[in-house]
């Protein structure tokens, strides 16, 4: 399936989404409240069938947090990029997609650990790499005088 057609299908499936043709993949941006429903539609719809969650990447933008989900369909072999932004960065909360893809459990724990984004309905949201004495290192305002030495 080519990208234009996929974009059209996604457009009809998720009306509220903002769809952009990226360089390689179709990029779908949804609001943080719609994320779980959009993800569920993308996974379950027989025309899209995105059953493989490749990765979740969190980013700290100065005003809010961004989350990027890379999805692939193992049947049609097309890929899509699902994006969302949290509201604010002090206490960002977003719905977990653990119920849809089990690999999200570890990926979301990592994001919680390093960026401090909380996931609703996550079965076991604990820190993964670091202990509780640490801040959230991947945030841009993270300060560590001991371990980070800049020239």
């Amino acid at each position: 399936m080519d990208k234009e057609k996929l974009a059209e299908i996604v457009k009809s499936l998720i009306p509220g989404a903002e769809i952009k043709q990226g360089k390689n993949y179709v990029e779908v941006s949804v609001g943080n409240a719609d994320l779980f429903s959009a993800a569920m539609i993308l996974r379950d719809n027989p025309e899209t069938l995105f059953d493989f969650l490749i990765s979740i990447s969190g980013t700290d933008y100065a005003s809010d947090m961004g989350l990027v989900y890379h999805l692939e369909s193992t049947k049609f072999r097309h890929m899509i990029v699902l994006k969302t932004r949290t509201s604010g960065r002090d206490n960002p909360v977003i719905d977990s997609v653990c119920g849809l893809w089990k690999s999200a459990e570890f990926l979301e724990r990592e994001i919680y650990d390093l960026l401090g984004i909380k996931f609703n309905n996550h079965p076991d949201l604990r820190r993964l790499f670091l202990d509780s004495s640490w801040g959230f290192p991947l945030r841009k305002d993270y300060v560590d005088d001991i371990n980070i030495v800049s020239k």
Partner: peptide, 26 residues
């Protein structure tokens, strides 16, 4: 997977490695 977010600088704004072992461990 290497996921690079660039803001036009000489170093990446955010780089994310989706490493296979991390996901396989799950």
């Amino acid at each position: 997977d290497t996921f690079v977010i660039s803001d036009g600088n000489k170093n990446p704004y955010r780089i994310k490695f989706r490493t296979p072992c991390f996901v396989n461990l799950g």
